[in-house]
């Protein structure tokens, strides 16, 4: 099973912080997951409309949209980070 995490403003738009899904066989990378979530609709689809404002991590490492997925990863979607100090 694939764990999907959403954080900060992306979590608010998604309407949830975490979900577990069975990855369709046709989905083999992050872009495929995004396309599938968009097609599924609802909050996550809205949260992933504008990918320019979304960063992706696979198994807690930053990843690109062409990062492969096998279906048992932890994938996180979140906005550009704003930690640290002025």
């Amino acid at each position: 099973m694939l764990t999907i995490l959403y954080f900060a403003s992306v979590k608010e738009k998604a309407g949830c912080g975490e979900e577990t899904v069975r990855l369709p066989a046709a989905v083999t990378d992050v872009m495929g997951l995004v396309a599938w979530l968009r097609q599924r609709g609802g909050g996550p689809a809205a949260a992933l409309t504008d990918l320019a404002a979304v960063r992706v991590a696979v198994n807690q490492e930053y990843a690109r949209l062409d990062h492969p997925l096998t279906g048992d990863e932890e994938v996180a979607f979140f906005p550009p980070v704003t930690g640290g100090a002025p």
């Binding site: 954080f7 900060a8 403003s9 991590a57 930053y62 996180a76 979140f78 906005p79 550009p80 980070v81 704003t82 930690g83 640290g84 100090a85």
Partner: peptide, 12 residues
């Protein structure tokens, strides 16, 4: 401090 601002996953 420069690099943690843009890589560590924190949101304010």
């Amino acid at each position: 401090i420069d690099c943690l601002k843009t890589t560590a996953p924190f949101w304010k």
